[in-house]
Design a protein around this nucleic acid. Structure first.
Length: 950
RNA sequence: GCUUCUGUGGCGGAAUAGGUAGACGCGCUGGACUCAAAAUCCAGUGAUAGCGAUAUCAUGUCGGUUCGAGUCCGACCAGAAGCACCA
């Protein structure tokens, strides 16, 4: 039986349009439900199968919710400002607006062809003056609140696009649009004070149901870090050099200061800096480097010592050298750091290269466990000891001693006696304990550490300060040890590889690790040493105490820093919303009066960005020259435009009341629709768009313009549709699938069904045309099912329970966006229907209704031609009855010692005794339990019987 | 390096709360219909052994908890994404 899906689809799409079937009402009795899918950029390449996936998924949910009696807002619009349209305009010398409206028309027709139930009465484009009037108006609100300001700033500059980029758009030093490397350029820019909302953006996440990974991505992006600012006096000046640190407790370990090359103090004291030329050379080199080069962590650090300037450490008045290096970022913290090479890997690298001293201020603090755990009731003794890691003269082995009584294996260890140096003590102990005399100590490891334990052999607690030396034997010359020593321990040689496993105590293993890795810097926590009033404290207490000190002495304060910076809001582009500000020689920057909005974007002779970094708008003199709203004198318009993120930062609000003339939307409409219940979009927008939009909305809320603080209740992200070869679809790879072709060849319903069936909605999935054919086949079988129709009006007895189960399954699955299993459940139900000789009219109508959100056209058609009832767009979703879902009998498995050995048929209400009996009667079960003792029998109703035998 | 996520047949993927692993679909094999093909229908399809009942193995690897682990715990391996010289 053939049917013309193209005609059927056309017929229903026209009918829905004529009846305004999907128009949402503002207000009314019904409960509201707001479903939002990110509006597309109407590019010339048309709709992608990826769009089809998310639009269809949310469309199915929208259709379900409507059928369940919700007032569903499911709108669509166009995000049409920005680079792609402009690029196209430059290339083809056409006015972007014309191109945009052509693309919108194509996109819209394509979206309609897949049967999406969008409420087109609320459609708009961000490029409509009626829309961007309000984008501009909102910018003025930011300005009035002091959150929009103009600032001379080093911005990310893309040579190729000839425009400034926000930090977000130039992440990693790469231009988001063209992929080329960005450089820095000093420009006067409009900024939005997003940093003021950093904490609020973190806090607000608590009130949302975003995916965990989206929340973490946002928190990482904001990058909150709590620490302190510390003021170092600049020697022989009145100035101070302020640094930001999260570890003010290491202040006693500071051995240098490092400034970013851009630091302002350098310019100020250039007369004092004796090597200023060298400094300047480095500054220029740093400026030329791209962000990528500067932040490449694999490359060696570089820097220049600033001769003639010194800083004074506020805790001990030590004079400290000052350096510049590009590993210190100008834009974070104060653009200067204090260097603690002993406890920071980056500082260590820098210090090693330039011979900056390394000073230990934190010592590892080992605390014994088990037999060595401290005993509270025993006395404590303090000791200074030396531990000697001594190498064999020829082989790669280390000298150890084994305690005969306790079987401990250790390096040679011994107390340092009064007046003795560490090296002398080591020499003496080695000869005493092992008899070897020809010893060469190479060095003492720079860091001491502490070991706290209960010494069983002496029955006291010990707190020992450990000094470690490394060396070797020059020969195996040996003298006889005292009897006492030779009775107590034997000498042994342990190979390098076995050392760590062989040594008994954590302290010796720590030494072994240090010796073998030849490391000096240890960033692990411990207790403070060489730190005056912090000695003996742990990290947390030391930070607190140091903060107290800094504040008392007025040389520092607790501070929080964020990675998130203010939003650079200017673009030197033509195709964007004009920023509604004018500059007057007398009055400075003056906002365009709200009554004069919108500031219409004029056409320009050339869309090309200019070489001098000005927007093409600057060439339209009659537009640029205007009068000052304040004094009436001559003024010029701001010629930069807004970034393309601006229009998408409030579009969901406009959908609530798209024709409203008095504001962004009426308060009544905004209160009615409230939050977006479900917002779908790609993972690529998890940080930027979502943060901008939340920031914008939180601001509007604080101004009393919108009624909710967090705009989106729940955010979900769809997975990508990959090409048949499992790679991202792209023209160059030739694996692009055009949805139009699929609609033409298989029908919109088949395409929809397939894209929902393809796999987990949130994960990427590879396209398969065979899979699509399979879904077409499924719909064909649904179509042919009409031949089995009898005249019964109730559910068929044989199918009733399965139908109820399927209603529940499909309802739950669509609501939780598990579309693939919803489709599969319907396939299973169809298989059951097909096994029957005939099906009732209610059976058929129900499967059609359940399938309707997924394949709306063919189900409506079948419902109509078979005269089964009202259109599904006007019908109430089928209800299920839990009590009818139980099956009369079912099979359950029987396990013996955890292995499945049989399955038995039991009835729904069968007693446990009877189930047990049936299990034991089974032939295969009998075989296994014969002659064995039955330890226990576990019966889990509806699931399994588990028999344990011995 | 840090954070997050993911590892199941030839493939896409199922498996509420730990309870018969591999649903459903694709592909493949065989058969029916047909002069033939397409379409459709029927049967089979994790691996190994066996005619078969059945047995052994199997959810990245190794351990653990449990009558029972894809699912819980620990360690590791692999891949993906995000952040990254952020002091």
């Amino acid at each position: 039986m053939n049917y013309n899906f193209t005609e059927i689809e056309k017929k229903w799409q026209e009918r829905w349009e004529k009846n305004c079937s999907f128009k949402a009402q503002n207000g009314g009795e019904k409960e509201k439900y707001y479903i939002l899918v990110e509006f597309p950029y109407p590019s010339g390449s048309g709709l992608h199968v990826g769009h089809v996936r998310s639009y269809t998924a949310l469309d199915s949910l929208a259709r379900l919710k409507r059928s369940q009696g919700y007032n569903v807002l499911f709108p669509m619009g166009w995000d049409a400002f920005g680079a792609p349209a402009e690029q196209y305009a430059i290339k083809n010398h056409v006015y972007p607006a014309n191109m945009v409206s052509d693309c919108i028309a194509t996109f819209k027709a394509q979206i309609k062809s897949i049967g999406s139930s969008f409420d087109w009465s609320r459609e708009f484009s961000t490029t409509d003056p009626d829309y961007y009037k309000w984008t501009q108006w909102q910018f003025l609100q930011f300005y009035k609140a002091g959150l929009a300001y103009k600032d001379e700033k080093e911005i990310n500059w893309c040579q190729k696009c000839k425009t400034g980029l926000s930090n977000e758009d130039a992440a990693g030093g790469v231009c988001e649009r063209c992929g080329s490397e960005t450089t820095k350029k000093l420009k006067n820019q409009w900024m939005l004070k997003m940093s003021a909302y950093a904490d609020s953006l973190i806090e607000g996440l608590k009130d949302t149901e975003f995916l965990e990974k989206i929340k973490t991505a946002q928190i990482n992006w904001i990058g909150k870090s709590v620490g302190a600012e510390v003021d170092f006096k600049l020697k022989d000046t009145e100035d101070t050099l302020t640094v930001f640190t999260t570890r003010c407790d290491t202040l006693f370990g500071v051995t240098a200061m490092v400034l970013s090359p851009e630091h302002s103090l350098l310019e100020k004291y250039k007369d004092r800096i004796s090597n200023y030329e060298e400094v300047q050379k480095y500054q220029e080199a740093a400026k030329k480097k791209s962000e990528i080069e500067r932040t490449d962590m694999t490359k060696e650090k570089t820097g220049v010592k600033v001769e003639g300037l010194k800083a004074i450490n506020p805790v001990n008045d030590e004079e400290i050298e000052i350096w510049i290096s590009d590993y210190v970022l100008a834009g974070y913290g104060t653009g200067a750091i204090m260097t603690v090479p002993a406890h920071d890997d980056r500082d260590y690298d820098f210090a090693k290269k330039y011979n900056i001293p390394i000073k230990q201020v934190i010592a590892k603090n080992i605390v014994g466990t088990g037999d060595s755990a401290i005993k509270e009731d025993k006395p404590f003794t303090d000791r200074e000891v030396v531990i000697a890691a001594i190498k064999h003269p020829e082989e790669d082995k280390y000298l150890c001693v084994k305690n005969k009584k306790f079987e401990w294996i250790n390096f040679v260890i011994g107390g340092i006696e009064n007046g003795e140096s560490v090296l002398e003590a080591a020499q003496r102990e080695i000869t005493e304990e092992t008899g070897y005399t020809d010893i060469e100590i190479e060095k003492e490891l720079p860091f001491i550490y502490f070991d706290n334990f209960f010494a069983r052999h002496k029955d006291v607690n010990r707190h020992i300060t450990c000094h470690t030396v490394v060396g070797k034997l020059k020969s195996l010359n040996i003298i006889e040890r005292s009897k006492e020593e030779s009775d107590l321990q034997e000498v042994m040689w342990v190979t390098k590889d076995e050392l760590i496993e062989t040594l008994n105590t954590e302290a010796h293993r720590y030494d072994a690790k240090r010796v073998l890795e030849d490391r000096e810097v240890y960033t692990e926590d411990g207790v403070h040493v060489n730190s005056g009033f912090l000695d003996g404290l742990n990290k947390e207490d030391a930070i607190e105490k140091m903060l107290e000190f800094l504040e008392e002495n007025k040389c520092g304060r607790k501070t929080t820093n964020y990675r998130l910076q203010d939003w650079i809001f200017s673009r030197q582009r033509f195709w964007g919303e004009p920023i509604p500000m004018v500059f007057c020689e007398k009055c400075g920057w003056v906002p365009v009066p709200e009554s004069e909005l919108p500031v219409i974007l004029p056409d320009v002779p050339s869309y090309e960005p200019t070489d001098n970094g000005e927007s093409p708008l600057s060439t339209v003199e009659e537009w640029v020259n205007t009068t000052c709203p304040t004094c009436g004198g001559h003024a010029t318009r701001e010629t930069d435009t807004m970034p393309n993120w601006a229009g998408s930062s409030w579009y969901w609000i406009r959908y609530m009341d798209a024709d409203y003339k008095e504001g962004i939307a009426s308060m009544e409409a905004m209160k009615y629709w409230g939050q977006v219940d479900l917002y779908n979009g790609g993972m690529e927008h998890a940080t930027r768009h979502l943060l901008y939009a939340r920031f914008w909305n939180q601001f509007l809320y604080d101004q009393g313009i919108v009624p909710v603080r967090e705009p989106f209740k729940k955010r979900v992200a769809h997975g990508m549709i990959l090409g048949e070869n499992n790679e991202k679809m792209s023209k160059s790879k030739g694996n692009v699938v055009n949805p139009d072709d699929m609609v033409k060849n298989y029908g919109a319903d088949a395409l929809r069904t397939y894209e929902l069936f393809i796999g987990d909605y949130t994960k990427d999935a590879a396209w398969s045309e065979n899979g699509l054919k399979g879904c077409k086949k499924f719909l064909d079988r649904i179509y042919r099912l009409q031949n089995k129709l009898n005249s019964e009006e109730e559910y068929s007895k044989e199918l009733e329970s399965e139908i109820h189960k399927t209603i529940k399954k499909v309802t739950d699955d669509i609501e939780t966006m598990n579309y693939n299993t919803a489709v599969s459940a319907l396939m299973i139900l169809l298989n059951s229907f097909d096994k029957q000789s005939s099906i009732s009219r209610k059976d058929y109508r129900t499967i059609l209704h359940l399938l309707n959100p997924i394949a709306p056209h063919i189900t409506e058609e079948l419902n109509e031609i078979c005269g089964l009832g009202e259109e599904f767009t006007k019908s109430t979703w089928p209800a299920y009855d839990e009590s009818k879902m139980v099956t009369a009998s079912y099979e359950i498995g029987v396990q013996i010692n955890g292995k499945l050995r049989a399955s038995i048929l039991v009835s729904a209400d069968e007693a446990e005794e009877s189930i047990k009996e049936k299990a034991f009667e089974n032939e295969n079960v009998k075989r296994y339990i014969e002659g064995k003792e039955i330890v226990k029998t576990i019966i889990i109703p509806n699931r399994i019987v588990s028999i344990v035998i011995k």
